[in-house]
Design a protein around this nucleic acid. Structure first.
Lengths: 153, 153
DNA sequence: GATCCCACTTGCGTGATGCAAGTGACCCGG
DNA sequence: CCGGGTCACTTGCATCACGCAAGTGGGATC
């Protein structure tokens, strides 16, 4: 949970980043999601994250509903937390393309089928996958009015 | 560019987060991508970001190849920068689902067609869209060996 | 009892961010 | 010409986030 929120941003991406935009957050989620980690020391060891930071992150994830804490203690992803998956996949894909000189270290597979799982933007109406310039943002009327009512500086 | 990198993480998502994981970074990219912003004060005003932080971010984005700086000065997204789009879309989608009590403030449309653009994980082999538990991570052999050669603590 | 492991907590130092004022360049109007 | 406004930053300082390392308490095992 970001200390200072993005309050002037009427935008869901900003809302998401308020919850998982801090240092280590998405890597914690990644390890829970894909390495099956549930224990404090598992996360700590695998990430090299300081225990006070990990405590803070896990506590806030539980409060935000991304994880639930069970006796043990076990930190288990909720449905809400699991649905962060496309973000992890998209981050991975970009990194594979532009920041992986040795090739992709991790690939994601469809369990059972064995095919590679990729994350892509596609049009719900026609099915096409538009290149980035072919995607435009439409701001809802109420959102535009709310944005205008919130001058930043 | 994160101050302390995620050096022990052999993972492209971590590489990506090293470049765009700092505060404001993805919101800057979002504004460039979807609001056509190219000028310093445009970003500064719309985000309410401190000028010293914005300077630092833009400079590093140019160094990392996400933006190029032209006379004006104009900050223009490169192809590398534009390919961050699925990340923005995925962040938005999660936020729409779980953090938008008033509904989605922004939707993304397929230019021309008008259909909504969504980002989804799909299997390249069979075309299915597996739910999160149906996606598994496969770590490449060299990556596992490199990870094992990098004890964290 | 001693030892080990786990799940944190604590205290302090360093680095990131926020705030607000300032600077220099440029443009426009009087 | 001068003054005012705008833009693109820079600077100095305060606050907050994170890193580091030691510590504490609980539980299990020998």
């Amino acid at each position: 949970m970001l200390g200072k929120l993005y309050e002037t941003q009427v935008c869901s991406a900003a809302r998401t980043l308020e919850i998982v935009g801090e240092r280590w957050s998405l890597l914690i989620v990644r390890n829970a999601m894909f390495a099956g980690m549930t224990r404090f020391t598992e996360f700590q060891r695998s990430l090299g994250i300081a225990p006070n930071i990990l405590t803070k992150r896990l506590t806030e994830f539980v409060e935000a509903g991304l994880f639930e804490q069970r006796p043990g203690p076990v930190y288990a992803l909720t449905a809400k937390g699991r649905e962060l998956q496309p973000i992890i996949l998209a981050l991975t894909a970009w990194g594979d393309r532009w920041a992986a000189p040795d090739g992709p270290p991790v690939t994601y597979e469809h369990a059972g089928c064995g095919g590679e799982v990729v994350v892509e933007a596609a049009c719900e109406r026609c099915g096409e996958r538009p290149p980035p310039p072919g995607v435009t943002a439409q701001v809802a009327g109420w959102a535009r009015r709310r944005q205008d009512a919130r001058p930043v500086s």
